[in-house]
Design a protein around this nucleic acid. Structure first.
Length: 797
DNA sequence: CGAATCTGTCATAAG
DNA sequence: GACTTATGACAGATT
């Protein structure tokens, strides 16, 4: 087994280096983690957490290859492992500027077309039917979008900017015109892009801004062209297109929805139903929460999705609009730094390359590179960490992007915001992070394997989101966050995150991870050996691997056996190197004296010679105690060794102790020994074995403690991560609540009853039920919120 | 010098 | 039943 381990690992390393030299990326972690468990066992060793390694049995069964776990020979083996880690880290060394240039060059308009074609037709709400019709259309949209909703919603930014909507030739023209940037626009893009190049911002971000501007400029034309038809659609109901154009403004300024309502109000006195429809269309609460629409993430998405091979659209978000660019830059830096911090906390981050390579849409090299950098080398196998890590960058500024959330362009799609409302805290990771991120970075088939919990869609998310209970819960959350939580726990978070930075420092020790944060965040994966060992093998088992790995990485040396290293001179030694003649004895031997000089073993071997010479040498040693080597040798002698010498035992204690029973008995039979000698030999054997057993036991105990300690640290890290995540979620929930309130107020301001008088917000309330938005008197709202004909009654009042 | 820690040894149980 | 291993407990050595 060890043979296999050694040579197979070396072969793998050489093969990997060879492949790396010719430009083929090989991620051995793929095989070590997922594909070939037996192979992984061979290389990484057994995975049991607390296995009582039968060292002696192992020793007795392994004849040829016996390396003392602490002998110098073992360093070779771990040197190979170190090399292997270096090779792995080579994968993560990338030059981001190269990828940037690639992202800038490639631009595939067809991806937008193909993607938007799914969402466009199904969203149209231009019939004058009741809210049930709306729901039906939404349901049909849900059915039509199906599992691809995760890819379509991400296109909202492009769509709302007047980008290609295949059913709309006018917008097609807009898109073409928007692609023709003026020179000022290009210069502005360049300036902004240079400002953000460190943020891995694709130029598309700025391109988007200019696009937005262009589309904004084109909007009047569009409105003129559609003026006639739109008036009809206002009468018949709200046209998606109208909402679309209105949210246009919203996406850019963040205040567009009021504009929309104002314009609507000026245009005509809307019927209640129209207004409600408008509100519904404005609130696509079936929409996937677009938390990833913050500045850095949108850039990441742009970089990862604008590869030629992807069929997904370009979810560009107006996060870098000229008005708030400085603030966004700062926010982006914070987000990037948060990502960096979280990267250091990654435990298992070796599977990302394999996952991305498995992506059928991302099967070329540039795509893989982009995706890897896009999510900062996050492993998809660790969903929680991955999602959280990205979310940390996504969520903080999610409020700025809530226009995306309320984008009516998305209203007809799969309503998935219900996850926000229906999800409890237990599955918050899967509801937000997994769907948002993996759904974007990876195609649905891959998602389905990991995000099963997110696929069920509850009936009407909007209603559940805005239920009173939900709002109460939000209030409680706000209260919890604003009172003490954000103070005390945030400080705790800071402390714990600071402690995490220590791990990141450790990760920087990796020879392949330079101080450059860009690469260290990705290489930290392969270099966090302690945590990786813990997660991959369950625990650092009581094996020679753990010990040597600990010594190798200098991470696990927390009160480990370093004292023993310093005490070698006084300790007894049982160097198996003296047993070259006895192969069975060459293997594992858990004394802590493997660094002893070979002279000691030589002295021990000399004990096999005549007892007279041994006695003479003992006397010499006693006489020349001032001479360091012999003095050390003498002091190294244990009581049993001295007793053995005193009783002229003709073989060393190590032979007595380590020989198998049969050979031991044969040895005793060969020599004619008296009873005292035999008794002493048996005692020596018993005590020696027990001594090793005690050492093993203590070491195992210590390893267990260290593993538990590591587990506690991991759990603390995870806890802090979850707390941080919770804070961000609460922020978003609060912002959502505020947005809903403001929009409700706006809607109330626009609503008119049949007499042309506005509804009083004190007397009426908006109920968000499965049938849509319903205006209800406050005194009745609690009891009859779900009756569909209630709306008619309300209108008559 | 005393406390803490390390180490060896014994007794015992279990395989 | 002999042998090996694991482990708690104890004591001496060392820091």
């Amino acid at each position: 087994m060890l043979y296999l381990k050694k040579y197979f690992t070396e072969g793998l390393i050489q093969f990997t280096i060879l492949l790396s030299l010719i430009g083929v990326r090989v991620d051995l972690d793929t095989y070590l983690n997922n594909q070939l468990p037996p192979l992984r066992e061979i290389i990484l060793g057994p995975s049991s957490a607390y296995t009582q390694t039968q060292f002696h049995n192992l020793r007795n069964t392994l004849d040829g290859y016996g390396i003392h776990p602490k002998s110098v020979d073992l360093d070779h083996f771990f040197a190979t492992r170190r090399l292997l880690n270096q090779v792995r880290s080579l994968d993560h060394l990338r030059v981001p500027s190269t990828e940037l240039s690639a992202w800038l060059v490639h631009r595939d308009p067809e991806t937008v077309v193909s993607a938007t074609s799914q969402s466009g037709p199904s969203i149209a709400l231009d019939n004058g039917g009741s809210l049930e019709d709306v729901n039906n259309s939404e349901a049909s949209a849900m059915r039509g979008a199906g599992g691809t909703s995760e890819t379509t919603y991400s296109l909202s930014g492009e769509d709302s900017l007047g980008a290609v909507a295949p059913e709309d030739s006018q917008e097609q023209g807009e898109r073409e015109s928007s692609d023709d940037l003026s020179k000022e626009d290009i210069d502005l893009i360049d300036i902004l892009w240079r400002q953000d190049i460190d943020l891995v911002a694709g130029r598309e971000v700025f391109n988007y801004s200019s696009r937005q501007k262009d589309s904004e400029a084109d909007k009047p034309n569009e409105e003129n062209e559609e003026a006639g038809g739109r008036e009809e659609s206002w009468r018949n109901g709200l046209n998606l297109r109208a909402v679309h154009s209105l949210t246009h403004v919203d996406r850019e300024t963040g205040e567009s929805i009021p504009e929309e309502l104002t314009s609507l109000g000026a245009q005509t006195s809307l019927s209640l139903q129209e207004c409600l429809r408008l509100l519904e269309a404005t609130f696509p609460f079936g929409e996937e929460p677009e938390f990833q629409a913050t500045a850095p993430t949108s850039q990441l998405r742009a970089t990862t999705e604008e590869t030629p091979s992807t069929s997904q659209g370009i979810p560009l978000q107006p996060t870098l609009s000229q008005t708030d660019t400085p603030l966004d830059l700062e926010q982006q830096w914070q987000d990037i730094m948060s990502i960096m911090e979280l990267q250091d906390m990654e435990v298992n981050n070796t599977a990302v390359n394999a996952t991305i390579n498995n992506d059928p849409n991302n099967n070329n090299a540039s795509t893989t590179e982009s995706a890897t950098v896009g999510n900062f080398g996050l492993p998809r196998s660790t969903l929680i960490n991955q999602d959280v890590s990205l979310q940390q960058a996504l969520l903080p500024s999610c409020g700025q992007d809530f226009p995306t959330l309320f984008n009516p362009e998305l209203g007809g799609q799969q309503p998935t915001l219900v996850r926000l409302s229906s999800s409890n805290s237990s599955n918050i990771n899967s509801t937000f992070g997994a769907t948002n991120l993996t759904g974007i970075f990876f195609p649905p088939p891959l998602n389905s394997t990991t995000n099963v919990t997110t696929t069920p869609v509850l009936p009407d998310p909007f209603s559940s989101l805005l239920e009173e209970s939900m709002l109460d819960e939000i209030s409680l959350l706000d209260l919890a966050m604003e009172e003490g939580f954000s103070q005390a726990q945030a400080s705790q978070l800071e402390d714990e995150l600071d402690s995490d930075s220590g791990l990141s420092l450790d990760s920087s020790h990796s020879p392949a991870s330079p101080s450059n944060s860009e690469t260290s965040c990705s290489s930290a994966a392969s270099s966090s050996s302690t945590s990786a060992t813990f997660s991959e093998e369950g625990a650092v088992g009581y094996s020679t691997d753990s010990e040597a790995a600990t010594a190798e990485t200098e991470e696990g040396a927390v009160g480990g056996y370093q004292p023993e290293y310093s005490k070698l001179c006084r300790m007894s030694y049982q160097d198996p190197s003296q047993f070259h003649g006895v192969p069975q004895l060459e293997s594992v031997n858990h004394n802590h004296t493997y660094n002893l000089p070979l002279a000691s073993s030589f002295s021990e071997r000399s004990q096999l010679s005549t007892s007279s010479s041994k006695k003479g040498r003992d006397k010499q040693m006693q006489q020349t105690k001032l001479q360091p080597p012999q003095d050390c040798i003498d002091r190294q002698s244990s009581r049993d060794e001295r007793r053995a010498r005193a009783m002229d035992i003709p073989f060393s204690n190590e032979i007595i102790i380590n020989l198998p029973v049969e050979e031991f008995n044969e040895l005793l039979a060969k020599h004619h020994l008296n009873e005292d000698q035999l008794s002493l030999i048996r005692d020596i054997r018993r005590r020696g074995k027990n001594k090793m057993a005690a050492q093993n036991c203590r070491k195992r105990k210590l390893d267990t403690i260290l593993n538990l300690e590591q587990g506690v640290q991991d759990l603390q890290r995870e806890k802090s991560q979850l707390l941080k995540e919770k804070i961000e979620y609460m922020k978003c929930i609060r912002q959502t609540k505020q947005k809903v309130q403001s929009l409700s107020q706006e809607l109330f301001a626009q609503l008119r009853n049949e007499e042309g008088r506005p509804y009083s917000a004190n007397e009426y309330s908006l109920q968000f039920g499965p049938d849509g938005v319903v205006l209800m008197p406050r005194n009745m709202s609690t009891e009859q919120s779900n009756k569909p004909d209630k709306k008619q009654k309300d209108k008559k009042k």
